[in-house]
Amino acid sequence: MKLRIYAIAYLIFLYAPIVLLPLFAFNDATIIAFPLTGFTTHWFTELTQNAALHAAVKNSLIIALCTAIFATILGLCAARAGAMSAFPGKKGIVGFVMLPLVLPEIIIAVSLLVILRQVLGLSLGNWTIILAHVLICTPFSIAILNGAFGALDPAMEEAALDLGETRWSAFRLVTLPLVMPGIISSMLIAFTISLDEFIIAFFLTGSNPTMPVYIWGLLRFPSSLPVIMALGTILVALSIVLLTIAEIFRRRGVRRSGGTDTGGFL
């Protein structure tokens, strides 16, 4: 019982900052402080009129979409290989691919900046951020898809081969539909991570900022803070929706391929 109270207090601690978002987003004051003064939807209206923000959001969406696709493709390769028989060095290679999960993001950011700018002399743009985001999202995709492939009976694909299908058509007709929920879940997670990522994007962004980089710029101007609150509210709501869908698909995937749920994304 004591533990339950502690756990609930902990959850409140986790959610405390987020709960403030809508409060200030609808508060009729330019200063972000208590007490609240009145209700307004003004900050949301202002969001719709900010062209620079729209450009940044569009950039971020493009980056997040590309990241989601490429990270999931890489994740699919690794997770499928993971479900196959072991070969010498396999564990080491998988560990290496998963490394960005524990690497400080600033290290990834500066090392990519050095190689792209200083060594190769390329100019930065959305594609450089995509490269980096695919790198950090792939481990998450692998973790999610490992769950989907791990719960899959290897005899399924063999059965399809046995019934006359080729390797590719067996994969397409049997494995792909069975891991599809995992693929959707992986894409949503990668999309969410990329959309929100700032530390690396700040280093690798070109002349067109991503949404988090744009927000970072706004944070210096007190007058734009309520607008950020409004934007944050929308983002949080969007993330929760995306993650809930991702979780539903992940669970469905585990169930569909016949496994039991062990919980969690990681």
Binding site: L14, Y15, P17, I18, L21, T192, I193, D196, E197, F198, P212, I215, W216, L219, I228, L231, G232, L235, V236, S239, I240, L243, G264, F265
Partner: peptide, 10 residues
């Protein structure tokens, strides 16, 4: 995990 996925900067 939900709060962890919501905009870090904000």
């Amino acid at each position: 995990t939900i709060p962890f996925w919501t905009s870090y900067l904000i």
